[in-house]
Design a binder for these strands. Structure first.
Lengths: 218, 218
DNA sequence: AAAAATATTTAGATTTGCCTAAAATTTACT
DNA sequence: AGTAAATTTTAGGCAAATCTAAATATTTTT
């Protein structure tokens, strides 16, 4: 279907497009660790396959087909990251490279079965949303607890993983969907935070735990 | 480290070498679905990397290094097949293609963690032995139950998978490691067999079940 | 042992994805 | 607006892995 290289270009363009409507040749070259001249070559090729619109000198935008492919690759990547962390017990910081390889195994059946095996997780271990098999991704007004401004009241609305150890910990700390939280303190040393849960005295949360929690500002 | 192509050549040579000491260019081309001329090119390259000994016109043999790589690729392949069948619930006949892709994801850590996750299985879903992380593979005088000659008494000594559904079924049929079995009948229609277990009246076993059982001739 | 048949290698191209260097275009600045 | 700076594209090449066709070596047959 598509080569590893093609998939990587499309994925990178998708990510860069989040920040700007049009993606430049240089940005892409930078991100893909390659040279602008190589990017130009590939863009022509991908345009011919109508995965993107490319206007000489004026950057590039994904077509709906391109976007669909990007979401598919991202879905595979994030599902594998989830598997590596929650089932093979990798650290969430050591999975990226391996997931970069696994994401290019092309089999819709495999992807869907992996999804089902993990009980259709909606977020990967870094807190990023996982597109479903139709390419729909939780568009979150919701933000990661780590990004919540100090003192701002918010409500927990999602958890990034279904790992039993995590759920157990949340239960004990009395953190659940719907709980009201406010960050009262941040420690730059270890990125841990103090959080007031349902107006009760603050508790300390590690960065690792906080990254699994998603909140809606109240 | 090695390209996908290189790994596939080495793996194929290993398999073909089981039948003959020296592997010919044509055999390899046939197995790899490519042309003899392409094989010659690659053999020169692999010789330069000292993965194999190659004498122009006289075929090829793996060096110890080549054999090590082959076993590593085979290990990855069979571990993934195991995962696909026992955890993602693929049919054992639909996993080969996907495992062909997964086997080329290069990460020793990943392979070892996958191995541990599945509790160090010694056989894949087709009954083939899985090399351990040192490249040691169960050298079986042991054969698959399907290959046992009619009337020949034997003892069950291994099971090809730890899948709970399988173990449950074996328990109910009173088949366990150490049980004495004799095949009393074969049906070519569905490849099922009638087996006498511990001298009790025969029971019917499906091909799929029988393939999971390994026996030592008594 | 020579000729015929088969197998293997060499030579020369092709495709993919990348490179460098030079040319073209756009953007930024005075 | 016109030039300098930055960006992007083009042109020409390279390495990997493949191909076809032709040449060469081995094996089989007579």
């Amino acid at each position: 279907m598509f080569t590893v290289s093609e998939e990587n270009y499309i994925k990178s363009i998708y990510h860069l497009q989040q920040h700007a409507r049009n993606v430049s040749t240089n940005e892409l070259a930078e991100r893909l660790q390659t040279k602008p001249a190589s990017v130009t070559d590939m863009l022509k090729k991908l345009k011919a396959k109508s995965l993107l619109d490319y206007e000489k000198y004026y950057g590039v935008t994904l077509t709906p087909e391109g976007r669909k492919l990007a979401l598919d690759v991202i879905r595979r990547h994030r599902l594998w990251e989830n598997f590596l962390v929650n089932h093979l017990h990798f650290g969430w910081d050591e999975v990226h490279e391996i997931a970069e390889q696994l994401e290019h195994v092309q089999s819709v059946l495999l992807t869907d079965k992996l999804d089902a095996f993990m009980n259709f997780p909606r977020f990967d271990p870094h807190g990023d949303p996982i597109p479903d098999n139709k390419g729909k991704m939780q568009v979150l007004q919701q933000i990661n607890l780590m990004q919540l401004p100090l003192g701002q009241q918010a409500e927990i609305c999602a958890v990034g993983s279904q790992q039993s150890e995590l759920l157990e910990m949340l239960r004990q700390k009395n953190l659940q969907i719907g709980s009201t939280v406010t960050i009262t303190q941040r420690y730059s040393f270890d990125q841990s935070i103090e959080v007031e849960i349902n107006k009760k005295p603050s508790q300390s949360l590690s960065e690792q735990l906080a990254k699994q929690l998603f909140v809606k500002v109240k």
